[in-house]
Amino acid sequence: MVDINNPQGILAAVKCGDLYSNHPLKAKEEYRLLVQKYHPDRNKETMAEDVFLKIRDLYAQAEILFESGQWEESNVIEFKTKEDKFKRLKFIKEFPFELGQQYVASSVVVYVLEAEHKRYFENAIKRVSSLRYENQAMEDEFERYFPKFIDKFETAEGKWVLVIKKTKDLVRLHDLLDYYLGRIEPRHVAWMLSRLGNICCYLDYNGLVHNGISLENCFVSPENHAIALFGGWWYCVGQGEKMLGTQKQIYDVMGPLTKTNKTGSITTDLESIKLIGRVLLNKAQVPDSYQAWLEKGAADSARKEFLRWNKVLRNSYGVRKFMRMEVGEKEVYSL
């Protein structure tokens, strides 16, 4: 809800639920307090009259909705499942993607796939559940980078919903890039590329190709220098298996042979990572070996590429140092 001490925030409110609680008596008391604070006869601030009108209009809207039982609130979506159960989500941001809609909240990421994409929904669940680990140490290291489905269901209208657990320190990589106005400092990009390369090594170990490693599907923790790959699993296939699809920007960097054969190849994921690096840097000046690696074609195995990258890092920056990134969910999403 809006901060009632912020007149501009009140003016920006769109729905009655942005200002009032979803309970008639509580909303009435909130309205009374707001009127006391912003009535032009008491408040001589220049914005007071406009704020008062907004308060009054939204309360009138609230009374109508209380009567009809149809409450409205910004950044809230309610799902009705096929079993006639209701699930409510308060989200921070929503984004369209090629198969449906994505919702980012503090504790979850939700993907809603359109009805015709059932096979992608099922493939995501299948591929994530198939991930294997050589030992407990490997599991402890990698499982936090991949989706943990806390709910999955079909809606009454036939859409397919995946609910993935998320920690507050994780923000969508695309949103982090927007926060930095389209360019991230090269040393920070370097640790992100290292984390993605590590994920690729694990996928290669499992014989998988993700086919969806992108700014939209990766979530980054600036605080902990970690990256989680939450989206895109609907495109994941075994190496050598027929591809199910990919995003356009990934298709554009796929090798000619992969495009011809239309089969899963780890080089697709490796080229996707290099693409991410180029986009995050946005032509920023980097050491020559760094730039050469970004432009060179990917190796035929994730391990080979990771070894190449480690050599590039040593040549570019010497001994690794932890660089703090003073930004998080609050800053990125203006909370």
Rank of each mutant, 00 (worst) to 15 (best):
L196F: 06
L11E: 01
C218Q: 04
F146L: 13
T263V: 15
R42I: 03
S334D: 14
L313I: 09
R144N: 13
L307N: 11
I10V: 00
I184A: 05
E72P: 07
A124Y: 08
G212I: 04
V312R: 02
T246L: 10
K283R: 15
E98W: 08
G232D: 07
W233C: 08
A284K: 15
V109Q: 00
A115E: 12
M254G: 02
Y180P: 05
L335E: 07
L313V: 07
H174L: 15
A12K: 15
R119M: 06
L113D: 04
Y103S: 01
Y103D: 01
P287T: 06
I125G: 09
R56G: 09
R119Y: 08
N224E: 12
I4D: 04
L58A: 02
L270V: 06
L99R: 08
R278C: 05
A60R: 11
H174Y: 15
S272I: 03
Y31G: 04
V51Y: 09
K15L: 14
L203Q: 03
G158P: 05
S221N: 01
E216L: 05
M1N: 03
K44D: 06
L131V: 09
I4G: 07
L335M: 09
M325T: 07
Q285C: 10
A13L: 10
I276R: 11
V220W: 05
A156F: 02
L170S: 02
H117D: 04
N315Y: 12
L181D: 10
N22D: 11
I199K: 02
K330G: 11
Y31Q: 04
P96N: 06
P186E: 08
W309S: 12
V163R: 00
K274P: 03
L89Q: 11
A226T: 07
F79M: 04
L176E: 00
G212F: 03
